[in-house]
Design a protein around this nucleic acid. Structure first.
Lengths: 233, 233
DNA sequence: AAAACTTTTAAGTATAAACTTATTTTGTCA
DNA sequence: TGACAAAATAAGTTTATACTTAAAAGTTTT
């Protein structure tokens, strides 16, 4: 990969990471300053700087001006979670995607939705309940609230051909997204929708998105039993 | 924040991001080449490059040599998940942390654990079952398997004062970590341990860590009802 | 001893220049 | 027409240099 004798910032990053993994530097320990590492590894300081920035982003190391760089004292498991469009998720697993519009109403947002958007006043919103299916078997049920002030296009849209999920993701990019993951028991209604038994443990993803400070949508996505969220891969 | 007339790479990144958010560039659209953006925004190409690298890491944009930069065609919700040491998590929420060692045995790892580590042969491992409590109420039950080949220190360690979770995180940094999140119903045993009812929906985090290609530990952390995992914050 | 300064330090940044590398496009030849 | 080689392209890279900024450490004043 690296014919040149020069060290790429990724190589530097890995070398420093290895030094930490080997225990040469433990939690809370201070690393040499960038300039010294650069000299020792005979590369430019900016190369070390780029490497350190990456280690800092990964939560491995903490950096402060004048304070120097130290190994994070209280390590965390930091991972990146990718949540694709539901259609794509299903297709990637080899399933055939379909979706059903269950209900579509305009309602005053309940307290739960208000809270998700950090709103103080009640607001009229579009509520869309839909089911995503993989090979005609229920996969995810979504209960979505859409702010028609931010997304007026949604008012007269046909949501049977394209799902709200897909349209929004493709047409309404967001600048902020909050996620909440938890488990919930299936009540009679959910059990029927997801073709399972009352009381089954269901995995729930709640998501709220904004453009600047304007709410776009919040979804509660309830997955059918067996659903798992993986990192990496 | 920015007295100078110069544009920082973060400012450039935000400006490009804004152009995407505003719809000026939609999914799949190609952005101008770095050099042109640099000229237009009158900054150095390397500044644009750094900005683009960040947008690429965030999954907003896709870059290919010679192919240029384009807005990701199939947007994903990409977030960073931080899972701290359980003690710290509890203390940060204002709880008083205690833990109990439930059981400690040496067993041949079951198929589930073998699979998590991508092992083909059965292996003898240390199994540690423990309960983390917040203000004396069950918070997370963990069922942990430790590879004594990789972590021999664990064999004669007192796990009543310091939890395996904490010791491992502080003393055994990992180079790879796989996560798996899902929901599970409480059976009689779990219900008793977590002080809840049989059938309650529980949130589960399964984690496997390696140092290089050597397995360190795999944990199944089962949270008491009400547990939620949040992003950001 | 506490508060208010100054200095020093180490990370953070921007830039131009030169070079590398993956990929696409184009051109040539069979 | 298709296969293959050559050229062009745009991102990726390192480097030296110069400057900025946050924060720690030291100094003086109250």
């Amino acid at each position: 990969m690296n014919n040149t004798s020069r060290l790429s910032w990724k190589a530097v990053r890995d070398e420093i990471h290895d030094a930490i993994l080997s225990g040469r530097y433990g939690p809370g320990d201070r690393l040499p300053r960038d300039a010294d590492i650069a000299q020792e590894m005979s590369c430019a300081r900016s190369t070390v700087q780029r490497a350190m920035q990456d280690l800092s982003d990964s939560g491995i190391v903490e950096r402060r001006r004048k304070g120097g760089t130290r190994v994070r004292a209280e390590p965390v498991t930091r991972t990146t979670l990718d949540i694709p469009i539901t259609r794509r998720e299903i297709e990637q697993k080899g399933g055939r995607y379909t979706h059903q519009l269950i209900r579509r109403t305009e309602q005053t947002a309940p307290r739960r939705v208000q809270a998700a958007f950090e709103l103080t006043e009640p607001r009229l919103m579009l509520r869309v309940e839909a089911l995503h299916l993989s090979d005609a078997r229920p996969y995810i049920f979504e209960d979505r609230w859409i702010d028609l002030g931010t997304v007026p296009e949604m008012r007269d849209m046909d949501l049977t051909t394209q799902s709200a999920n897909e349209w929004l993701v493709l047409n309404k990019p967001y600048s902020r997204c909050d996620l909440r993951l938890y488990a919930q028991s299936a009540d009679a209604q959910l059990a029927e929708l997801l073709d399972t038994t009352v009381g089954a443990a269901l995995f729930v993803i709640e998501r709220a998105t904004w453009i600047d400070s304007a709410p776009i949508t919040t979804v509660k996505s309830i997955a059918a039993p067996g659903y798992q969220l993986l990192t990496g891969t």
